[in-house]
């Protein structure tokens, strides 16, 4: 179940695309490039994993990009200006972002408001708050940053699996397990199928909504910390539009935008596809980097059309006779 065919299509697109790139630029097929791809897209992978939960449950979270921006500024200021130990700063910002997500979830449930509007408000709120903290880029010079940034696992072929890439992979795997193996995961699908029915069947819809948005914001907070490692700075304008990139990754990964079907692994593949296009453009050197957006747009459109086709197929009544033994 769980939308396997779309995931397979995503995987095929990724492999085929990678093969095409490798034919044109043989150097792309190296662990070095793949390692960089994972590092460059670590924050996107993390935040998209959270977005997958939200979208499968039938919602949307537009605030994640702003939460990442706020996190980088908060962490940078806490460490550099307020003299807070980095670990304490991390714990504080994760608690803050989780609470922020929980609050959005609560508002969505209690006032029965569309998630689009509530998280749009959250997006402005978080972005505004990060400007309030600082409008400039704040460099982070704490030793822990260089330690973490320098740490990497060597891969055969000279590639480096950096610490932030490892964090991302761990979160993707953890997210997949959470979604597919736990009661929480089953309830996420149930909510996406129908909130009313899920509630009739005994799912605590309110608690689930709060938890789902809490998870998304928490992962956005982690993505923010990862982003601050990646850039060694905090900047209120960072990660603008990342919410849209992550929605694109989720949809390209085969998750139904209307909820009820999808997978974290698919989302991960969607992130890799976006990263691959970016890499190709870097290798080419003559193309404007905006081609990434154009290619992503085309892919997104193709996948939505594909899903509509699959949904239409699924709606055709399949009458299997009851296997009666009585």
């Amino acid at each position: 179940m769980k939308g396997l065919p779309p995931v397979l299509i995503t995987a095929i697109v990724l492999v085929a695309g990678f093969a095409l790139c490798a034919v044109q630029f043989p150097n792309i097929a190296s662990t070095r490039v793949v390692g960089n791809l994972l590092t460059d897209n670590a924050f996107l992978g993390i935040v998209a994993a959270g977005m997958t939960f939200v979208i499968i449950s039938g919602g949307i979270d537009l605030s994640v990009g702003s939460v990442i921006g706020f996190t980088t500024v908060f962490v940078a200021l806490a460490i550099e200006r307020w003299g807070v130990p980095p670990l304490v700063a991390f714990v504080a910002i994760l608690a803050l972002s989780a609470a922020f997500g929980a609050a959005m979830g609560a508002v969505i449930h209690v006032f029965d408001l569309p998630p689009f509007i509530v998280t749009l408000a959250g997006m402005f709120l978080a972005r505004g708050a990060s400007f309030l903290l600082s409008t400039e880029s704040v460099p982070i010079t704490a030793p822990v940053y260089s330690t973490v940034s320098d740490f990497a696992l060597r891969m055969p072929g000279g590639g480096r699996l950096t610490s932030i890439a490892i964090i991302m992979l761990a979160i993707v795997i953890g997210g997949a397990l959470l979604l597919h193996l736990t009661r929480f995961g089953a309830n996420v699908y149930a909510l996406g199928g129908s909130r009313t029915t899920a509630s009739l069947m005994g799912v605590a819809v309110g608690k689930m909504t709060i938890k789902i948005y809490m998870l998304s914001s928490l992962l956005a907070g982690i993505a923010g910390i990862v982003f601050s490692f990646y850039t060694s700075a905090g900047y209120s304008l960072s990660a603008v539009g990342v919410e849209l990139d992550s929605i694109a990754a989720v949809v390209i990964g085969g998750t139904l935008l209307t909820g009820g079907q999808g997978s974290v692994i698919g989302t991960f593949l969607g992130v890799l596809i976006q990263g691959m296009i970016q890499t190709y453009i870097n290798f080419d050197g003559t193309l404007s980097s905006w081609w990434t957006k154009i290619a992503t747009g085309v892919l997104l459109f193709a996948f939505i059309a594909l899903q509509q086709g699959l949904v239409a197929l699924a709606r055709r009544p399949v009458r299997k006779s009851a296997g009666a033994t009585t």
Binding site: Y189, A190, G193, T197, Q261
Partner: peptide, 11 residues
């Protein structure tokens, strides 16, 4: 009143 997107067992 069941969820068509979930497996029979999950339902």
């Amino acid at each position: 009143n069941l969820l068509p997107n979930l497996s029979v067992a999950q339902n």
